[in-house]
Structures are given as C-alpha cells and as structure tokens.
Design a binder for these strands. Sequence first.
DNA 1: ATTTTGACTTAAG
DNA 2: GCTTAAGCCAAAA
Length: 102
Amino acid sequence: MASPFTETVYKATRQIPKGKVATYAQLARMCGNPKAARAVGAAMRTNPDIPKTPCHRVVASDGSLTGYSAGFGIKTKREMLLAEGVSFKGTKVNLAVSQWQK
DNA sequence: ATTTTGACTTAAG
DNA sequence: GCTTAAGCCAAAA
C-alpha cells in the first residue's frame, strides 16, 4: 500500500479477469473518480510486480499499451496479454472482444 | 502550502 | 500515426 487511492486502484486491477483488459479510465471510474485515469497510471507506476497486481491487463482507452517498467517494457506486456488470449490489433488490443465488461 | 511530474483522455492539425 | 494543447487527478518533492 502506498496511499488510499493507490490501494483502491490495485484492488480494482486485481478484479480484472484473465484474458480481459481494462482501460485506465475504466479503473478510475471504478475507484470513484472517472477523471482520475492519470492518477491510476501513477499508481501503476508504483506497482513493480505482476502476480500481485496484473497491471499488464491495464491499457489505454484506445487499446494501446503504454508504460510498463518490467521486462522489455511494452514488448513484454504485449506478449503476456497475447499469452492470456487477449485479441490484438497490431500494436493495440482489440477492445471490441477483449475489454473487461463489469 | 505550492509546484512538478506522469503507465491518461480527447480534440485538433 | 504522431505531436500539441488543454483538462483532471493523485503522489512526491
């Protein structure tokens, strides 16, 4: 835990089912602040590990893979999502079929 | 308390 | 597809 908001973001992130992805804005909305997408990203930056919080399942609003500090960065993130069965559209995630639906 | 920064988003060129 | 610009939020300095 780093801060209350960050804690909430982690909790939301852990709820993302395998093979699905959620956008920063979507998680922000779950946390109670639909406009805190940026803060969500800041929280993710603090989270160094995968098994604890699947930050690799969190993508930008258009499905683009941004950030990620582990492994080879974006490249690693893409590989992981692909391995989980997430549908990809070139460099982006095919949100139409892989976006998490609450 | 104020400023800076950033894994964001949308709009516009 | 990429860069700028403006908007909003939270954590860190």
